[in-house]
């Protein structure tokens, strides 16, 4: 889901995890000392039963879908399949069709613009707000926790609310801009503005997550560093550039990479605001995947889009794990 899933990053939890993709074994040296191998005792079975339900669930609801998407993408999996049960193998035909479809490159570009725009906005505003709230002042904790609200609301509720705010004729935003003599902006109805509007809403949704994580990182920078810096004349912006940013680097890389992973799969906000329109101006890879599967009932093509999405996520997951390891090393 969206940026709001709090990532359980806990770098210290993965002392020896290699930044390798999926099934890589952890480095042997990092394992807790292996005790002498014991036979499967009754106690050992009970211990395994503690994890068995969760393991089974993860296999069925994460493992199976990933595998199933790969096989589906190689099949002609359509409405007919649900009646006849037949899904003939078609090799890479789905990928060929997807790559040659007129919507493929626009949706790639939109996914990139949506992701980069959202993350840049969320991160910069999040960083500024986190720095602001780091100064202790009356009510600072209360105000900061109230800031979490946009993050806790159902995304479809946020979409509905923003749709009324961004409405071209009656929306409060255009009425507000009108008081400055500005023309009404067709936020969600013009192909040239819609993507910007969607990005703006997604920035709003993502700010609390960024503030929370960056604020946590700021708290961990020891005050002594600033005190020492002040003796050398590093105050204000200088302290920010020379002390805050370098020390925040591991947190920043994690927040950015996670932001990418959570943003490229965003679906609710775009469906609620524009449904991928107007004139396909807000089509992204996940919207394509949804529409191919559940509007056109071309599950093969939908799965092909999904797999492209997974592939991109995987690249960033690897970057994330590397960044995470660096955070541990430092």
């Amino acid at each position: 889901m969206t940026p709001q899933r709090v990532s359980e990053t806990a770098p210290e939890a993965f002392p020896g995890t290699r930044p390798a993709p999926t099934t890589a074994a952890p480095t042997p040296g990092a394992l807790p000392p292996v005790r002498t191998r014991k036979r499967l005792t009754r106690e050992g079975v009970v211990r395994l039963l503690f994890v068995a339900p969760a393991a089974l669930y993860l296999l069925l609801f994460f493992g199976y879908p990933v595998v199933k998407n790969v096989t589906m993408s190689l099949q002609a999996y359509t409405t007919k399949t649900f009646f006849t049960g037949e899904a003939p193998w078609v090799g890479l035909a789905n990928y060929e069709a997807v790559l040659n479809s007129s919507l493929f490159w626009p949706s790639m570009v939109n996914t990139a613009l949506f992701t980069v725009g959202s993350i840049a906005g969320q991160f910069l505003i999040g960083l500024a707000l986190a720095c602001f709230f780091k100064r202790r002042f009356p009510l600072s904790n209360f105000l900061r926790s109230m800031l979490l609200l946009p993050w806790l609301l159902p995304l479809i509720v946020s979409s509905a609310t923003w749709r009324s705010i961004l409405d071209q004729d009656s929306g409060i935003l255009n009425r507000f801009l009108g008081t400055f003599g500005l023309d009404a902006v067709p936020w969600l109805t013009s192909p040239s503005v819609a993507l910007i509007a969607v990005v703006l809403v997604n920035i709003w949704v993502g700010i609390p997550f960024n503030v929370t994580i960056i604020y946590g990182g700021l708290q961990d920078i020891p005050d002594e560093l600033y005190e020492a810096g002040a003796l050398d004349g590093a105050t204000g912006w200088k302290a920010f550039w020379n002390i805050t940013l370098p020390n925040l680097k591991p947190v920043i890389s994690v927040v950015l990479v996670l932001g990418v992973v959570y943003t490229i799969k965003v679906l609710d906000i775009i469906l609620g605001l524009t449904n991928g329109g107007p004139a396909n101006a807000t089509q992204t890879l996940s919207i394509r995947s949804y529409q191919e599967s559940f509007i056109n009932f071309e599950f093969g093509a939908g799965a092909a889009f999904s797999n492209i999405l997974i592939l991109i996520s995987l690249v960033f997951a690897v970057i994330y794990l590397r960044a995470n390891r660096r955070a541990v090393d430092e």
């Binding site: 889901m1 899933r5 990532s7 359980e8 990053t9 939890a13 993965f14 002392p15 020896g16 995890t17 999926t22 099934t23 074994a25 952890p26 990092a30 394992l31 994890v51 393991a55 993860l58 609801f61 994460f62 199976y64 879908p65 990933v66 199933k68 998407n69 589906m72 992973v261 490229i264 799969k265 679906l267 996940s286 995947s289 949804y290 599967s293 559940f294 599950f299 939908g302 799965a303 999904s306 999405l309 997974i310 996520s313 997951a317 794990l321």
Partner: peptide
């Protein structure tokens, strides 16, 4: 460690992937 890595990665799998298969 492997289990934790798998759980972490499962959080990154797009929901639409799960919906397609389910």
């Amino acid at each position: 460690n492997i289990a934790l890595l798998a759980i972490l990665i499962s959080q990154m799998i797009p929901g639409i992937v799960i919906a397609n298969a389910l």
